[in-house]
Structure formats: structure tokens, C-alpha cells
Nucleic acid binder design. Structure first.
Length: 489
RNA sequence: GGUCGGUUUACCGAGUGGCUAGGUAGUGGUCUGCAAAACCAUUUACGGCGGUUCGAAUCCGCCACCGACCUCCA
């Protein structure tokens, strides 16, 4: 199987041709959310970025197993022994069972991901469902000599690992520097070095989320689940691991160390990281409290929102920037995205009614090639969109008889738009359901015919009143060259 | 403080040595009973200073500013 796709690999800091290990199969693992509050705009970024990659790989003919984990255990508030599990903290605040919290916010996340038209991953494994596997992984690391047990907790021995393997290669860290900058938090006496990290933590008596283990009643460390679940479902070596740039260190660095220590070789061939969404130039994050949830975006209920924005507007907004650039949130930018999306979708509808000519005056094959080039160049969705807008111009020009297309080229153009707009970019027309539409079409025809009769009699006040009243009802009429167009506002 | 990245026209956002990215907003025009849409034309650029080059937004150096990571995080 052939492709021209190049992806930016964080490991090499270069774009590399994408060659899967076992074509036509591709293994894709992406770090999912920690489910302890409603999904926010920041969560939409990796979901849409890797949805784009997933869709494109499938379009190229690959059979992709897409695994995205759900973190429902284990992430501590801080690195101290007193650290309280994020999920447990929320559970106490809301008087819920920890797993009830997990379910609630997982539902919220998945509902919003569906609204954004991201495809479901092939597997969405949960950390709490893989405790035994994680313990087995720890045992293997201990056997290889890269972990040590202290008072029922198990830590990864970074110093020892770094003597054989290059710890820090992904994030560009140097151990000596880490030594100097690592924070000296309380309760770290058990570690041999400050940069060691927990594989298993003994649970304090009041800790609710706990499982029995050879070392203690406790819970797995922060980074372990991804090493375990990625290799369990994708094999010891797999193609792509994705996630947010903020996870590069320490999370992904620790993942590499764990997997390499346990398996004797590196698991991941291509590391892909999406950039952050910022607000007023600063990263949007739950811990900073400057986030807007997806629910709020969709219903407009947030002090910073001038209006509500539909899921497709949000999706288009994100796709308009390259995934490795930051995107700054603003009402202006979202409103521009909303209009741009409407223009694109309107043209796809117009496309269906184009009249063919005996010759073509624009080059559709070339347009198609440019669309593939954009996607092949590290998923350059903004350039793809700019090419598609060139197609929009063609469509409208042909509709206005300023340009011409043969029937074959119209079909090809339709193909290009269906493929890239709907299949690959995953945009949808957030219209209305089909049954209502049929009735509305009939009613609109009656109204438009009556108005035309008035116009024929030059009763402008009547025809204008019909148009104005329809506008109040949310329908826009337009008199065009050969008839009347209408659409919903 | 260390490591890494960024600074593009009114706003968003591509672009790595010479050729109009694109979207949104603005202006003028075509069309039109009017309006709208569409199309055509068009204005405001590459943080600062220096260097390399026939030629730099694009390469190099210095400076300024902003951000990410070094705690949990998408």
C-alpha cells in the first residue's frame, strides 16, 4: 500500500514519511481525558486532530485500530503522599461514588465528541479496567531491575534507566538539569531521586480508589495506564501515539521509559502532538480556571461568549489552524469561522444543481491533487480548506455562468467535496431532519408561487411583505436570475 | 533560572529564498423593482537591528516581547 503522507514526529522533530509497521494495518493510540469535570474547548483539539488523522488514514485505505484511553484512576493532585486522587476529590465534593463521577463526566465527554462529529475510537479502554495488566507491567519492570519498592509503593528508577537508555529524548530534557529544577515537594522521602516517578502507590486509609497488589492496597501511578493499554491492544511496537503537547513531559517521557524498561525496546514509532488552545494568549486549562466548556460554547452561556456556536463551527474553527499551532479563542474568530463554514456548505449544495457544459474552463483534477498535497503535508487542514474555497469559487462561478464544467468534471468536483469536506474534514450540514424538510419544501413552493404572482402584477408591497415576514420566521428569500432561492437563517 | 516554540496585513490564519494562500470584515463595481446572495476589482503585512545573497516574511546573529513545559493538564 502506497501513500505520500508525511507526519511531524516529535521524536525526531522532523516531518517523516509515514510507513506503517504492518500495512494495511495501522495502530493509533491517543491520550484521552481524565474524567473529573465537563469537557472543554481544549479537549476538542486532540479529539478533532486525531479524528482527522484517523479519517484520512482510513480514506487512504488503511485498517486503523484507534485506541483512546479514559483516565478514571490514579492521577494525583500533587506528588505528595498526602496527594488526593482528582476523581476522589470531586467525588467527595459532590457526594458521589468515584465511579459515578467518572461515568457522569465520561458521558459528557462522549456526548460532546459526538456532537463534534468525531468518530468513536475502535477501543476506549479505562485505566480502572486494567489494574491487573498494570500490576503485571510493574512486575516486569521490577524484574528487569528498573523499579524498586519502598513501604508498599513502587517507583521507577530513572537514574538506572538513564545509564542504559536515553531518558529525556522526547522532550529534550537532560537529567542533570532535571535534578536541578525538579520541585522538592513534601513526602518524597521514599524516592531515591526526585525525578523518579510512581508505578504503584500505597493508598492512605481514607483513600477510596484502591486495589490489592503484591506491594500494598493501592492504585497505579500516573503514567502506567498508557504504556499498558497501548501495548495490550496495539502490540509491543505500534505506529502512532498522539496527545496534547502538554503531555510530552513528563507523561510521554515516562511512558517511553516504562515501556522500554519492561519490553526492552521502544514501543512508539511516531509521536504526534497537537498544540494548545489559548484564551487571551494563555493556555486554556481546568487547573487555570480559564476554560469554556463545550456545553457552554454550544448554548452560549458563558460571560465571554457573545453568542452560541454550533459544534460544526467549533470543528471548522479548529480545522482552520494547523494542529501544531496554538489557536487563540475569540468571538471574532469563531464568528468568522461560522460564516466561512456556511459559505462552504452552501456551495456544496449548489454543486448538486450545476448545469454541465461541453467543455471545462477550470482544472478540477489539479484542485483534487492540491487537496491531497495539503493533507499529505502533515495534515495541513488550513491549506486544504483554502483549496476547497477555490473550489467554492468555481462552483459559484459555474452557477453564475462565468465558468464552465463538463458533466464529468462536475461529478469529479462533487467527489472531491464529498471526500474532503464530509469524509475527511468530518464537517456536516447541521440541517434539519429529512421528513420535515419535505413538507417545508412543499409549503415553500406554494408561498413562492403566490409571491411570484404578486410580482407579476408588480404588487411590490405584497411581495416584499412575504419576504419580510418569512425572514421573521427565519427563512431568507433571494430573487436570483432564474427563480427564487430560499434557505434557513 | 533551564529547555522548547512563537511574533504575518483590521481580525483569524497558511506560507521557508524570487510567483495573489484562504476565511471574516471594509471599499468600489456587475446583476437587480428593491433587498440579499454570488461574481469581479481593490486597500492596510511580514516584531526590532545587523549580516549572507543578484534577491529574505522565508537563511544566520543579536535584541525585544509573548507562550508552553520543568506539578495535574488535551
Amino acid at each position: 500500500m502506497q501513500n505520500n503522507l508525511a507526519l511531524y514526529n516529535s521524536l525526531s522533530r522532523k516531518k517523516e514519511p509515514f510507513k506503517p509497521l504492518h500495512p494495511p494495518f495501522v495502530g493509533l493510540y491517543v491520550c484521552g481525558p481524565t474524567v473529573y469535570s465537563d469537557a472543554h474547548l481544549g479537549h476538542a483539539r486532540p479529539a478533532i486532530t486525531f479524528d482527522l488523522l484517523y479519517r484520512y488514514l482510513m480514506h487512504l485505505g488503511y485498517r486503523v485500530r484507534y485506541v483512546r484511553n479514559v483516565t478514571d484512576v490514579g492521577h494525583l493532585e500533587n506528588d505528595a503522599d498526602e496527594g488526593e486522587d482528582k476523581i476522589q476529590k470531586k467525588a467527595r465534593l459532590e457526594h458521589l461514588e468515584p465511579m459515578e463521577v467518572v461515568q457522569k463526566y465520561l458521558n459528557n465527554f462522549l456526548k460532546n465528541m459526538e456532537k463534534l462529529n468525531t468518530l468513536h475510537p475502535s477501543i476506549e479502554p479505562r485505566a480502572s479496567g486494567h489494574i491487573i495488566e498494570q500490576q503485571e507491567f510493574i512486575k516486569s519492570i521490577i524484574e528487569k531491575g528498573y523499579a524498586y519498592e519502598v513501604n508498599g509503593s513502587v517507583y521507577f528508577d530513572v537514574l538506572k534507566y538513564s545509564q542504559k537508555y536515553p531518558y529525556g529524548k522526547l522532550s529534550g530534557r537532560v537529567l542533570e538539569e532535571l535534578q536541578a529544577t525538579v520541585r522538592d515537594l513534601e513526602g518524597q522521602d521514599e524516592k531515591r531521586n526526585l525525578f523518579d516517578f510512581a508505578l504503584w502507590k500505597k493508598a492512605a486509609p481514607e483513600h477510596l480508589m484502591r486495589w490489592p497488589s503484591p506491594w500494598s492496597d493501592g492504585f497505579p501511578g500516573w503514567h502506567l495506564e498508557c504504556s499498558v493499554m497501548s501495548t495490550k491492544y496495539l502490540g509491543n511496537i505500534f505506529d502512532i501515539h498522539g496527545g496534547g503537547m502538554d503531555l510530552q513531559f513528563p507523561h510521554h517521557e515516562c511512558e517511553i521509559a516504562q515501556s522500554t524498561a519492561a519490553l526492552g525496546k521502544e514501543s512508539v514509532r511516531y509521536w504526534i502532538h497537537n498544540n494548545m488552545i489559548t484564551i487571551n494568549g494563555q493556555k486554556m486549562a481546568r487547573s487555570l480556571g480559564n476554560y469554556i466548556t463545550l456545553d457552554q460554547l454550544f448554548n452560549g452561556e458563558h460571560p465571554l461568549l457573545q453568542q452560541k456556536y454550533s459544534p460544526m463551527t467549533v470543528r471548522f474553527f479548529i480545522l482552520q489552524a494547523h494542529y501544531r499551532s496554538t489557536i487563540d479563542f475569540s468571538n471574532e474568530a469563531l464568528q468568522a469561522a461560522e460564516k466561512g463554514l456556511q459559505k462552504l456548505l452552501k456551495a456544496t449544495a449548489t454543486l448538486k444543481n450545476l448545469r454541465p457544459s461541453s467543455e471545462s474552463t477550470v482544472d478540477i483534477k489539479n484542485l483534487q491533487a492540491k487537496c491531497y498535497e495539503a493533507m499529505d503535508d502533515d495534515l495541513n487542514s488550513p491549506v486544504l480548506l483554502s483549496n476547497l474555497f477555490e473550489g467554492v469559487k468555481y462552483i459559484n462561478s459555474v452557477n453564475d455562468s462565468a465558468e464552465k464544467l463538463t458533466a464529468g468534471d462536475i461529478e469529479l468536483l462533487g467527489n472531491v467535496f464529498r471526500t474532503f469536506v464530509f469524509d475527511i474534514l468530518g464537517l456536516t450540514d447541521e440541517g434539519i431532519n429529512a421528513g420535515d424538510e419535505k413538507l417545508t419544501e412543499g409549503l415553500m413552493k406554494i408561498i413562492i408561487d403566490l409571491r411570484q404572482e404578486a410580482k407579476n402584477r408588480k404588487e411590490w408591497s405584497t411581495s416584499d411583505k412575504i419576504r419580510e415576514d418569512l425572514k421573521k420566521a427565519g427563512i431568507i428569500l433571494r430573487d436570483v436570475k432564474d427563480g427564487v432561492e430560499w434557505e434557513r437563517e
